[in-house]
Write a protein that binds this DNA or RNA. Structure first.
Length: 258
DNA sequence: ATGACGGTGTGGCACCGA
C-alpha cells in the first residue's frame, strides 16, 4: 500500500498535474493540502474518472484539505473535534486494506508567520489540540498514518540554512517540541527510517531560484504509528513535480507499507 | 531591512504563504 501527501497550492491550478502524477504514481491514497477552493468546486468527477474516491474539506482562498483513495473512505472527520477552528486544515478517514483498516489523517498545519506573532500563538494552540486528538485517535485506531504539510523542519538537517534561520519560523524549539510530542505518541517519521540523500527537502521558495539552488526545507511529513512501523518498506520525496512548468512550491512525499 | 514568486480576490492593488 502506498500513501502520499502533497501541498498543491491551489487545486484549481494544479489539477492537471495531480492527475498526471497519479497516472505515473498510482498510489492507494493521496492527501492534498492548500486546495484553496470550496467543496462545491472540488473536482470529484475528474478524480472518479481516475479511479479515486475523494473526501474534501474545502475553504475559499486559503487552506482546504482532501483525501483521495482507491478504496472507499469511511468515518470522515473534518477539523480537530472540540477545537473551534475557522480554517479548514484537517481531514481524517478510514480505509480497509488486506492487512487491516488504516486510519488516514491529513493536515495542513498552521504556518505561524513569526515567533511572537498572533499567528504563531494560534500555531501553538493548534499543535497542542492536534496532539491531544491524535492521542485519542490512536487509542481507537492503532494502524494510523498522519501526513501533511507540517510547517515544521524537525531537525537542522531538514533546512538549507539551519544557522542563518535559527529560531525563525519552522525552526523554533517550540515547533520542534510539538513535532517531538507527536513522535512521543509512538509515531515515527517514515522518511528517517531509511538512508536518504543529504539536503532532502519537500518545499522550495518560488523566489530567488530556490529550487535550482536547493534552498529548501523538509516540512512535509508522513508519520506512522507503532503498529504500522514494521510494514514500512520505503519512503521518499518525489522532486519531479517541482520541475513542471507552473509547479506547486511543495512536492509529494510517498510511503510504502508492505 | 527589504523584496524576490505565485495564488486569490478585488480592482489597477493588498494579502498571504514559508
Amino acid at each position: 500500500m502506498k500513501i502520499a501527501t502533497w501541498n498543491v497550492n491551489s487545486l484549481s491550478v494544479r489539477l492537471p498535474q495531480v492527475l498526471a502524477w497519479l497516472e505515473v504514481n498510482p498510489v492507494d491514497a493521496l492527501g492534498l493540502q492548500e486546495l484553496k477552493l470550496i467543496d462545491d468546486k472540488f473536482p470529484h468527477q475528474a478524480f472518479e474518472e481516475a479511479g479515486y474516491h475523494a473526501a474534501c474539506h474545502g475553504q475559499k482562498t486559503y487552506n482546504g484539505v482532501a483525501w483521495l483513495s482507491r478504496s472507499p473512505l469511511s468515518a470522515v472527520v473534518r477539523n480537530i473535534p472540540g477545537f473551534d477552528d475557522e480554517q479548514a486544515r484537517i481531514i481524517a478517514a478510514s480505509v480497509d486494506s488486506p492487512q487491516g483498516p488504516v486510519r488516514l489523517i491529513n493536515g495542513y498545519f498552521v504556518n505561524g508567520q513569526a515567533p511572537g506573532s498572533e499567528k504563531f500563538a494560534y500555531k501553538m494552540r493548534w499543535l497542542q489540540a492536534l496532539h491531544d486528538w491524535i492521542k485519542t485517535e490512536l487509542a481507537t485506531h492503532e494502524r494510523l498514518v498522519l501526513v501533511g504539510d507540517f510547517n515544521v523542519a524537525p531537525e537542522d538537517r531538514d533546512s538549507f540554512d539551519p544557522v542563518g534561520l535559527k529560531d525563525t519560523i519552522h525552526h523554533t524549539q517550540e515547533e520542534r517540541a510539538h513535532f517531538q510530542a507527536l513522535l512521543d505518541l509512538g509515531l515515527t517519521d517514515a522518511f528517517r527510517m531509511f538512508e536518504q540523500p543529504e539536503k532532502s527537502f519537500s518545499w522550495w521558495d518560488y523566489r530567488m531560484l530556490g529550487f535550482q539552488k536547493n534552498r529548501g526545507l523538509r516540512i512535509d511529513h508522513i508519520l506512522v504509528s507503532q503498529a504500522l512501523q514494521d510494514s514500512v518498506s520505503a519512503c521518499s520525496i518525489d522532486r519531479a513535480p517541482r520541475k513542471n512548468s507552473q509547479p506547486s512550491d511543495h512536492t509529494p512525499v510517498v510511503v510504502t507499507l508492505g
